[in-house]
């Protein structure tokens, strides 16, 4: 998904760094990475360590980091939108205007990244960036520990016990789609997008599944 962006900026002092939040590890991530054949690094994060460090709750989220290693845009939705909620439940087709709007948002996000790389625009002042940092609560920190244990148990083949800890992680941190979808049953296409997923999305009501960043074109 980021190959064009990375290519278009390859003469700049810039890189995409993509991280798969995938407890299944290399074997589940490999087909996706090989199909994309990216020229930027693609890393595998079995324990969702990155999400814990940065307070990330969904994919894809992006963090912009400057040359000094400073966060200039904290985690935010990276080019995805809630238009999928208008998908036909049977055919999975999206109304054409929704598909067009979704594509426009994705393009606007890519343009914003390019703009930042070339001009520094859209980097937030430290006070603004700080105010946009996700709040890390004791419940979330405990959720991370439960998730880590659940994933370890799952990888050790102790699925039933693993589910207890993965469920506890979701209970403690219900806003983490990462936790919930990683634990959930997969549908026939390998996505955690079965009926329970759609029920959870419906339960959001007016809240966004993919909250939109404060950038031009959004």
């Amino acid at each position: 998904m980021w190959q064009d962006l990375h290519e278009s900026l390859k003469t700049e002092n810039f890189t995409v760094l993509a991280v798969a939040e995938d407890s299944g590890g290399v074997e589940v991530a490999r087909p996706w990475i090989e199909a994309a054949s990216p020229s930027y690094p693609c890393l595998i994060d079995v324990d969702h360590r990155l999400a814990a460090l940065y307070g990330m709750v969904n994919v894809p989220q992006g963090v912009w980091i400057d040359e000094e290693g400073r966060i200039v845009r904290p985690p935010e939705t990276a080019g995805y939108t809630d238009h999928f909620r208008r998908m036909d439940p049977v055919t999975r087709a999206l109304p054409p205007e929704a598909a067009a709007a979704r594509a426009a948002v994705r393009a606007a996000y890519m343009d914003a990244v390019r703009d930042w790389v070339r001009t520094g625009r859209h980097a937030l002042d430290p006070a603004v960036a700080r105010a946009k940092l996700p709040e890390i609560t004791p419940e979330k920190a405990l959720a991370d520990a439960n998730f880590r244990l659940g994933i370890w148990l799952r990888r050790a083949g102790r699925e039933e016990e693993a589910m207890e800890f993965l469920a506890e992680a979701s209970r403690l941190h219900p806003d983490s789609w990462n936790f919930w979808r990683q634990a959930a049953d997969k549908n026939e296409t390998g996505l955690a997008a079965g009926p329970e997923f759609w029920e959870r999305v419906s339960a959001l009501g007016d809240r966004a599944y993919y909250p939109q960043p404060d950038l031009p074109g959004f």
Partner: peptide
Amino acid sequence: RGKKVFLTTWASW
């Protein structure tokens, strides 16, 4: 360090 980095997540699920 010394480069701008667009750090992003994805997942197979």
